Computed example of a mutant assay.
Amino acid sequence: MNQVSLIGRMTKDPNLQVTHAGVPYVKLSLAIQRRYRNAKGEFDVDFVPCTVWRKQAESTAHYCHKGALIAVIGRIQTRNYVNEDGERVFITEIIGDDVRFLKLKYDDSTGHTKPVNPSEIITST
């Protein structure tokens, strides 16, 4: 079984793109705070690359912004390629099948969601 569930904050605004075949997708990175403190007493953060396709990508691009707390449910995918220097590059990413919008910041002045303050992207618990 290859299934993963992540909850984290988006590190930047999503950029909806379209493949040559016309399939929409969004590449995003989730900042996910670890549960335990390191030797310095701080929480480390993992930045996990995710790709979301089709309608989920369109909805994510429309409703989410940098700092939005989201859940991504999907699978781990690995791939590799040879770069222009002839070196093999390995990539591990999450392919999101389902995206849940957990917390968007609401702007009373415009009536729309907006990004949270960058200082709120990672909070200690």
Rank of each mutant, 00 (worst) to 15 (best):
44 D>K: 09
72 V>E: 00
28 L>E: 09
66 K>A: 14
69 L>H: 05
60 T>A: 14
81 Y>E: 03
47 F>H: 14
86 G>A: 10
70 I>W: 02
66 K>F: 12
83 N>K: 11
41 G>R: 03
63 Y>M: 05
64 C>P: 00
66 K>G: 08
45 V>Q: 08
73 I>T: 15
78 T>V: 07
65 H>Y: 11
83 N>R: 10
36 Y>S: 11
50 C>N: 09
75 R>F: 09
87 E>P: 02
23 V>E: 07
25 Y>N: 00
82 V>H: 01
26 V>S: 02
29 S>I: 13
35 R>T: 10
50 C>G: 11
26 V>I: 05
87 E>N: 15
66 K>M: 12
27 K>F: 10
26 V>F: 08
68 A>C: 15
50 C>I: 13
23 V>D: 07
49 P>F: 11
53 W>I: 05
53 W>H: 05
65 H>N: 11
42 E>N: 14
52 V>R: 03
50 C>H: 05
81 Y>L: 09
41 G>N: 09
81 Y>M: 07
31 A>L: 03
70 I>M: 11
82 V>S: 05
49 P>D: 15
67 G>V: 05
48 V>W: 02
68 A>D: 14
51 T>W: 00
69 L>S: 07
28 L>V: 14
33 Q>A: 11
69 L>W: 03
47 F>W: 15
28 L>M: 15
25 Y>H: 03
81 Y>C: 08
60 T>L: 15
86 G>Q: 11
51 T>N: 03
77 Q>G: 07
48 V>Y: 05
41 G>K: 05
26 V>W: 10
60 T>R: 04
58 E>T: 02
53 W>L: 05
86 G>D: 08
39 A>M: 06
40 K>T: 07
57 A>E: 06
38 N>L: 00
49 P>L: 09
36 Y>V: 13
47 F>V: 13
46 D>V: 06
72 V>G: 00
83 N>C: 12
58 E>V: 05
71 A>F: 00
41 G>C: 10
68 A>S: 15
46 D>I: 08
58 E>L: 07
56 Q>D: 00
64 C>E: 02
42 E>I: 01
56 Q>A: 15
54 R>H: 12
36 Y>W: 13
62 H>D: 09
